[in-house]
């Protein structure tokens, strides 16, 4: 009898110990790279060549100013990235909400076919249409311009799907009808009633679209040609392409840190919504 009550107790302890062990190991594997990155970004080229130490050096400011004056327009790249990602996030969420509203609130001919089409194209990777996309941009004289990186985000099936599901749970048809009774126009209803109601879901999707665009390398590397127009991922790839071992390694680490840490800071501030958003949405990419 005594053994019987003792045994499950022990096994819970054992499992809990194992769980914490694995969790701490995973957390270590997820964080250690960024720790090393931070340490190395604070050390000078000479210190770095002498091997790794787990303590920060004193070259943080020097590496930072070195990066500002390096051959690569890193700060400009960050501004470009902010511009492209910010506009993409705004356009993507506004128009995806609009698309979701069209499917949610109106019963028109072809509605179901349209919904199925949007879901069907959800999984098509951008890479498989890249060839035609580049040819199109060339013909439209939109190569080396941000238009091709920003405007396509208006048609984002995954964002649409998430917002549509959220809309199903918060927006009742009777609310829309009440607005009509009060004489509100359809665009007015959409902008003044639907958008505010959808704010939590829009915020989550805006973050995901921003981060997705911020991290995107494939399309920008094909479209952007002028050095001062390039976004951060393209500049990072250039850094890899150069004979970078001749570079000041402190500055190389600083440049990588400069492109990674803003996202980490934003994430830590908003992690509650982001993790919750993944949980709700299921699909991200």
């Amino acid at each position: 009898m005594e053994q019987k009550t003792k045994k499950p107790h022990n096994s819970v302890h054992g499992r809990r110990f194992l769980a914490y062990f694995v969790l701490i190991l995973m957390s270590f594997l997820c964080l250690v790279w960024f720790y090393i990155l931070f340490i190395n970004a604070t050390r000078s080229n000479g210190e770095l060549s002498r091997g790794f130490t787990p303590f920060p050096g004193s070259n943080l400011v020097k590496n930072f100013t070195g990066m500002l004056h390096s051959t690569q327009p890193v700060v400009r790249g960050m501004l470009n990235s902010v511009l492209v990602s910010g506009l993409s996030a705004i356009l993507c969420t506004y128009f995806s909400t609009m698309t979701a509203y069209a499917i949610h609130a109106y019963r028109f001919k072809g509605r179901k076919a349209m919904y199925t089409l949007i879901l069907a194209i959800m999984m098509i990777p951008t890479q498989v249409t890249a060839l035609g996309f580049i040819q199109l941009l060339t013909k439209m004289k939109l190569m080396d311009s941000y238009v091709g990186l920003i405007i396509p985000s208006i048609a984002a099936p995954a964002t649409f799907f998430y917002l549509k599901q959220y809309m199903d749970s918060v927006l009742s048809i009777s609310l829309i009808e009440a607005a009509r009774m009060d004489g509100a126009g359809e665009f007015y209803t959409f902008n003044k009633i639907v958008i505010p109601l959808m704010k939590p879901a829009i915020a989550v999707q805006a973050i995901f679209t921003f981060v997705g665009s911020w991290n995107n390398y494939f399309t920008p590397s094909l479209v952007l040609k002028t050095e001062t127009k390039k976004t951060l991922p393209v500049l990072i790839a250039e850094l890899r392409g150069a004979d970078f071992l001749k570079f000041d390694m402190g500055i190389v680490y600083m440049t990588i840190a400069f492109s990674i840490f803003p996202v980490i800071i934003v994430y830590l501030l908003l992690s509650k919504y982001i993790v919750g958003g993944v949980q709700l949405g299921g699909v991200k990419e």
Partner: peptide
């Protein structure tokens, strides 16, 4: 733990690879 383990998903893959 969820926050930490999800973090790398948001990191720029190209910068992570360069790192």
């Amino acid at each position: 733990f969820k926050t930490v383990i999800y973090l790398p998903n948001l990191i720029m893959a190209s910068a992570f690879a360069m790192l």
